[in-house]
């Protein structure tokens, strides 16, 4: 397995190596040591490679991931897994602002806490946070699932479209047009599947509450013109 030491090897060389993996190749595992908060580690993956990053990373780690499996054995800076298309990104520590922003697919697991704007404008990604999330999370989230085992900060799901939000702990406040919704069997089923995929074994889906859009804001209604 190739090991890239980012104190010795330029980042571009590592990111290029991820692109040079030929279709059908067996040797697809990579290790990164000494990331030391570097930006853009393992961005633009477009093959089913496996990357283990030993340490903490800066901005945009695993951005645009399409099919790779990236594990950060440390914490991640702003914009981790931004615009993920498919694959899996696991953060063993905490994640900074806008984790999983605009993601279209794949699974992002954060084992610590996530800061503000987690899942902002998500469009199909699944995000599971073992800890808590900060304010303005899932702002304008369009589709996908955000699962939070801890608490959510202020203005959860503001201007929400059709993403589903599951929170086990408290929610400091709900954003505009975000409401609590009934947990039906189909939601329990979706949630169980996500918890299993994220390696959560000691928590039952029944412990969560579901939040979603009241659908009063994004389907413009002329009767509400005064409110805008």
């Amino acid at each position: 397995m190739p090991v890239f030491d980012l104190t010795a090897t330029p980042l571009r060389e590592f990111n290029q190596a991820l692109h040079d993996v030929k279709s059908g190749a067996n040797d697809t595992a990579f290790e990164v040591v000494n990331p030391r908060g570097h930006h853009s580690v393992a961005v633009g993956i477009d093959a089913p490679v496996v990357v283990d990053v030993r340490g903490s990373v800066g901005y945009y780690c695993a951005g645009m991931n399409d099919g790779g499996t990236v594990t950060v054995h440390g914490s991640a800076g702003p914009g981790v897994a931004e615009n993920m298309m498919s694959g899996t990104v696991v953060i063993e520590g905490d994640a900074s602002q806008y984790a999983g922003a605009t993601g279209r697919g794949g699974l992002l697991v954060i084992k610590g806490n996530a800061a503000s704007r987690c899942g902002i404008s998500m469009k199909g990604i699944d995000i599971v946070v073992h800890g808590s999330i900060g304010h303005m999370s899932a702002f304008m989230a369009q589709s996908g699932n955000l699962v939070v085992l801890g608490d959510a900060g202020e203005a959860l799901g503001d201007s929400l479209y059709e993403a589903r939000l599951f929170v086990r702990g408290s929610v400091k406040s709900l954003g505009a047009d975000c409401i609590e919704k009934e947990m039906r069997p189909e939601h329990i089923e979706v949630l169980s599947g996500l918890l299993e995929k994220a390696g959560v074994t000691d928590v039952k889906p029944e412990e969560f509450k579901r939040y979603g859009s009241a659908r009063k804001l994004y389907t413009f209604n002329i009767d509400n013109a005064d409110a805008y």
């Binding site: 030391r36 908060g37 570097h38 903490s56 800066g58 901005y59 914490s75 800076g77």
Partner: peptide, 11 residues
Amino acid sequence: VAFGSEYRALV
């Protein structure tokens, strides 16, 4: 106690 705009500053 240390502060940085980014973690890079602290490594």
